[in-house]
Amino acid sequence: MLFQQIINGLTVGGVYALIALGYTMVYGILELINFAHGEIYMLGAYLGIILFGFFTSVGLTSHSLALSFALTIALSVLFCSAYGFTVERIAYKPLRNAPRLSPLISAIGVSIFLQNYVMLTQGATDKVFPDLLGSAGFDLLGARITYLQVLIIGVSFLLMLALHLYVTKTRMGKAMRAVAQDKVMASLVGINVDSVISVTFIIGSGLAAVAGIMVAMYYGLVNYFIGYIAGIKAFTAAVLGGIGSIPGAMFGGIFLGLIESLGASYISSEYKDAYAFAVLIVILLIRPAGIFGKSTEEKV
């Protein structure tokens, strides 16, 4: 049972980690809790269902499942990145020099707006993703693992690795880290801060889109309010690992998934959502910088 619960926890944790990366990157650069990030993930899940349904209706799925699948993922990532970019331009950019609470309130506004936008255009009832793989899977050490679980865990780790390499090795990645350290200095050495911020939002949203599609496939069920709770949990994961730190977000996501899974099975499943919040409060009280984060003095 323990091994099964660990597999369950890893699957959910991988999804949290992918969303948490978006929070942590934006916070690292703008010191903004992008409250709307969970909604981008929700948009990704919806886009997955809409686009896959579209390709099925034009007959592409029956022709080539792999192609229509690849197109669905590519287009969803594209659209979600576009949404992330647009949200930043409209709701956060004008507030870059405003008091700290203003962008946070604006982010809450974006979150409410996107939720209701999807509810009004796509309806309030649950959307169902066609069951492609069924319950196919294999047994390992007394646990039942489906291929989708393997896919989710695998894709999450690959994307995290790719992101880590991107941030540490490429020119843009280095620029990101420079902006995160000091925006003014970065612009003085010729880094275009605005475009770095845009790229951050685009990458974060793309990762959230992948998480959204995988979740839509895994559960087969999507509604317009999944973004809120997933967003809060992913944020918790980011704080847990140390907000602003990319390895921290990965670790935090996995850790939170395991806590939830084990807590729900050994303590009580009715309080499942409360574990994330309890962990969050405890972490912020004991070690506000998180496990991987560095504590910084507030600037005067």
Partner: peptide, 28 residues
């Protein structure tokens, strides 16, 4: 009490968590 230690946006999230925990306790 936690509010005393936390800066603006962290505080916001902790109060949010507090609100959810209270609701979950009432429900369970």
């Amino acid at each position: 009490v936690p509010a005393l230690r936390l800066r603006g946006d962290y505080l916001a999230i902790v109060t949010l968590g507090f609100g959810e925990i209270i609701r979950l306790v009432l429900n369970n």
